[in-house]
Design a protein around this nucleic acid. Structure first.
Lengths: 144, 144
DNA sequence: TTAATTTCGGATATTTTTGTCCACTATTAT
DNA sequence: ATAATAGTGGACAAAAATATCCGAAATTAA
């Protein structure tokens, strides 16, 4: 469904959020360890999230990644996904046609659109903060 | 959502079905042309469909691909997708955890499962034949 | 039987995705 | 100032997905 990069990106965002609610910054090593992802690759993905202003980064000792409170309070999963994978997952044709719309649809267009839209709404209405809280309460896990 | 291979595979199955309802076999070249896919790669995908008994192939002149009537009448998209991409799309964790279930779920588990299940039901309840008919009636297209 | 045609299967090539490495810059504490 | 620390950015490597090629096997028609 999502690319590996996107999966790591979502997990990372949730973990950073967990720490940010406690005003703690986290380093790359800790992120990679806690979400069980390859460190160097995770670094690239975090850079994307920084560029897209989802995550904040600070260099130097005492540096690390965090999510600003103002951002954290309306950061949904869609923003994270789009920052990494783009929006093709919401717009692309299920059967891979370059163009596919109501006027000239693939034979699966209508019903596939329903699933796609449901996914998009799920991502729009799910916040990173809410998932971070699940982790805190031990109701969800980021590895294994 | 689906791999490129799977997209080609579904389109190919639909096109072959179109011809099979008229008791016509089709060659690789025609399939690739009509669904706008790379010929050699399509050949590999068709081999998979043959191995999985979705499609029938005959060698030699007058040979080609077809779908048996008996199979055509209860061939849903799920079978085609599983033949090519396997069932990970229905079972895999949205956030990429190796194991993710109700007992130890990722924080997105429940809501993601809904979307995944909706997709699976869509594929189970959609038949290749029904899509082929859409093509016949000009209500759907396999290229562009 | 021979020639033509069509799929099969293995080897190979290309492209994209995933993953690693390292020198560089910024920042902090001493 | 200096040394240590942490993210950045670019080059590179490995793996997977996508795509091509070609000889072999099967089948048909002449």
């Amino acid at each position: 469904m999502f690319s590996k990069a996107c999966e790591y990106g979502i997990r990372a965002a949730i973990f950073i959020a967990c720490q940010s609610v406690q005003s703690r910054k986290v380093g790359l090593k800790e992120v990679a360890k806690e979400i069980d992802s390859p460190e160097s690759y995770t670094s690239k993905i975090l850079q994307k999230l920084v560029k897209n202003e989802v995550v904040l980064s600070e260099k130097g000792p005492t540096g690390g990644f965090s999510i600003e409170q103002s951002i954290l309070h309306d950061l949904n999963l869609e923003k994270v996904v789009v920052a990494i994978d783009g929006d093709q997952i919401f717009k692309g044709c299920g059967l891979g046609l370059k163009q596919c719309n109501a006027i000239k649809p693939c034979p699966l267009h209508d019903s596939f659109k329903e699933v796609r839209d449901k996914l998009q709404i799920l991502l729009q209405t799910t916040t990173v903060l809410e998932l971070a809280e699940k982790i805190e309460y031990g109701l969800g896990f980021l590895k294994r």
